[in-house]
Amino acid sequence: MTAAEAGAAAMDAARGGLGASAGGSGPGDPGGGAGGGAAPSPAGAPGPEAERVIEARDLTAAFGATTLFRHVSFDVRRGEVFVILGGSGCGKSTLLKLMIGLVPPAEGTVSILGTGVWSTEGAGRLALLKRIGVMWQQGALFGSQTLQENVELPLAEHTSLPPAARAEVARAKLGLVGLSEAANRLPSEVSGGMLKRAGIARALALDPPILFLDEPSAGLDPITSAGLDELIRDLARALGTTFVVVTHELASILAIGDRCIMLDKAAQGMIAEGDPRTLRDESTHPTVRAFFRREAA
């Protein structure tokens, strides 16, 4: 067992209710679903037998008379980096908001760690929210607080850690994303890449088993973007965290994704599911091929 796999196993055990199977070094995902098996995924992704931590069934999103997508169903397995991809306006970010309970679905259900997102209220919903972390597209850090204070906020609200301990834990989270020296800066004083990393540190504050990232690479230069991809893979391997990433950055999708689904605006739904490398190499769907080959539709 490598150190990275061992780390994942440690977190699996730490999360108790999630069981211990996903932390092991299963074989690379052979393409799960539509893809079929070809190239291995970036880092020992959990196999098809891994526990399903998110189950989405028949999701339909509509705003008034406009339908974004219909009957989208998929599972996310524990410990994997799951990517939602697609062109602009296909409903990727809406699907993410629907999964975390911000936008109600027109139809369908989502459950996270066995809890229905839209059927649970009160204390159950709060308990669920404490088990997920979200990194927003623009960071969504509070402008009047330093990065350190931003990370400390969920710790102060949801744990009984003493103030000195909170500060130390926040420092550790910022250290994990390489922002130790910027801890005392305000969000307006740091770059876009640092904002996104600080967003991840805040999302990690309560050590949630599932992290949702909305366009983590958007607007970043290739070097910063690659660094962020590496960080996501690194955290997934070391901490065993499940990542759900919304992106349309091709390089990121191939670098971090264990499995993906692809939404399409014209089809108003999901047109592919599987290992991104397999989809790139073997898919016969014209839109999927055009997407991965950067061809005009």
């Binding site: 061992a6 420092r171 250290g175 130790s180 801890a183």
Partner: peptide, 24 residues
């Protein structure tokens, strides 16, 4: 420390060893 625990411990130790921000 068991191997799986040591992995997390090492990562956090490295994170906390990073220089602290300079006081303004």
């Amino acid at each position: 420390a068991r191997p799986q625990v040591a992995a997390v411990l090492d990562r956090v130790r490295t994170a906390l060893a990073a220089p602290r921000p300079k006081p303004v």
